[in-house]
Amino acid sequence: MKVRVLGCSGGIGGRDQRTTALLVDDDVLIDAGTGVGDLEFDELLRIDHVFVTHAHLDHIAMIPLLVDTVGEARSMPIVVHGSPETLRILRSHIFNWLIWPDFSSIPDRGNPFLRFQEMHIGESANIGGGRRMTALPALHTVPAVAYQVSCDTGSLVFSGDTTYSEPLIAAINDIPDLRYLLVETAFPDALHDLAIASRHLCPSLLALFLDRIKVSPEVWITHLKPSRAQITVDEIGNYRGRFQPKALYNGLEFII
């Protein structure tokens, strides 16, 4: 199983700044930020599932355009998975005929371009080929989940947007075959109060988080805010725990 980074920035601006999206093999997205826009039409056509961590725009912006672009060319609906609260937000505020058409009823409800599938914390979805997606707890300003991507050879966890979360730490520690941990750190420590208020991590909170991790994955940092990315990375580099976190970048691939 292959996971490719399409976008991992906490903002836009410049060729390398794409918001959050991961491509699992060639048919599954985790979040659908602006990084999805770099895929060619044939690549978009192969996407069968989108697993959404939460409903903030930088993580869902390309779902409406994806469905609109390929819906008529597909024989099956794209399935958008998320917590009940996240899907309620998408239905109410995006696919509401005001911001965007309700593609779960186009061309009709019996044969739609889009289907929503609820996922609860701890629930797993089989996505074919022995691959599984499991929703893990996260803590953000809106209802949010992290995801475990797993197959017979190992697991990857993507935190989505979260602050320090004991339930997420406990869930991570229950994954003995965890090979990669992709965890957000949005702000430098100078903006610690903003990180707390917006329920993101900063380097000092990340250090507390990592010090509680008992398994031994590679740790990669996502969701750096472009204006403060370098100082945040430098501060993360001062971490003296047993991990050596590195910054994600577009095009990076993980083989599980």
Rank of each mutant, 00 (worst) to 15 (best):
D58S: 12
H56I: 08
R91G: 13
S9D: 04
I12N: 02
R228V: 15
E72Y: 14
H140G: 09
V80R: 14
H56C: 00
E184G: 12
V183N: 01
I99T: 15
Q148H: 07
E235T: 05
I175G: 08
K214L: 07
Y180T: 04
D189A: 04
H56D: 06
D68A: 12
G160H: 08
D26T: 01
V215D: 00
T162L: 08
T20N: 02
R109C: 06
I106F: 10
T69D: 00
P77H: 13
L201S: 05
I231P: 06
V149F: 13
V36N: 01
E85Q: 12
G130T: 07
E43W: 05
V70H: 11
D193E: 14
C202S: 14
T34E: 00
F254E: 06
M1C: 12
E184Y: 08
E123C: 02
C8R: 00
L23Y: 04
D102N: 14
L191T: 01
S198T: 14
G129T: 05
A229Q: 12
T34W: 01
L206E: 05
R109M: 07
F187D: 06
R115T: 14
S155C: 03
I121C: 06
L114D: 06
D174V: 08
E166W: 15
D25A: 07
D48V: 02
M133V: 11
P176E: 04
T232A: 11
V157K: 03
V3H: 06
I255Y: 09
K214D: 01
G130M: 01
L90N: 08
F103S: 07
S159N: 09
T163L: 08
L22P: 09
H200M: 11
P101Y: 10
V142T: 13
T185C: 15
C8I: 03
W97N: 14
N250T: 13
A146S: 15
D31H: 01
V28S: 05
I47M: 00
G241K: 04
L22Q: 05
R132K: 09
R91H: 14
C202R: 00
